[in-house]
Design a protein around this nucleic acid. Sequence first.
DNA 1: TCGTCATTCAACCAATAGGTTGAATGACGA
DNA 2: TCGTCATTCAACCTATTGGTTGAATGACGA
Lengths: 119, 119
Amino acid sequence: MTDQLSRAFQALADPTRRDLVARLAADGDASVGDLAAPYDVTVQAVSKHLKVLEEAGLVSRSRDAQRRPVHLEAEVLDLMTKWIARYRQQVEERFSRLDAVLAAMDESDDNDEAEGAAS
Amino acid sequence: MTDQLSRAFQALADPTRRDLVARLAADGDASVGDLAAPYDVTVQAVSKHLKVLEEAGLVSRSRDAQRRPVHLEAEVLDLMTKWIARYRQQVEERFSRLDAVLAAMDESDDNDEAEGAAS
DNA sequence: TCGTCATTCAACCAATAGGTTGAATGACGA
DNA sequence: TCGTCATTCAACCTATTGGTTGAATGACGA
């Protein structure tokens, strides 16, 4: 689980972390304290969640006085969608080829019938 | 971690499981034994991986004599891309609004300058 | 019916995840 | 410089994960 994609999927496997991403997407950058407020866990727990998101490359942090504003990075989200889309597409392409094969078989059946009728 | 989306992201957080999905997408349905062959782990371990994928709704299994062919289900992949795309899009929309605000500020500056020049 | 093949179940193990509390760090504002 | 606020580090706990081995299940084919 050391590669980026694994860390990214792992990061979004937690509902609290998905909600953090959702809020950052909707409201823009926010401090750890503000982000932690709505949840029923300690601020330390949320800080850990943010660390997981950061190590996955999903968020970054800057500094603003005592605060460490959290910023959502969209690139890794793109990476993830591309991974999924690739295999999603392969499935469709396989179906297309299967359809083509089935169509060819139909045609072949027609030919056989035609040949049978001709002999 | 009981909801579908969490289980799906969790399932794809493992490289072996992502590879299983990739192979099923490329080659179509396959038996547990065939799927397990390339990896350096026991067939039981792969069976467990497939169970995780199945509980996430990413694959289904039927029966063919002794074999239990594994079939990739694309729906949950769609669910995942939709989740990501939604927040990806929100980020872009926020940028657009920010651009609009900045543009409005520029315009306001122009007006101020114009008014200043007119007085 | 018996042996065999494909798969899963069960019990176990080490490592990791998500949470806690308490202490440390680091940047202000008085 | 001192107290305070925001955040992180450290140590700890329990549950889960990914792996193992060994036994059970279940469907053929002889």
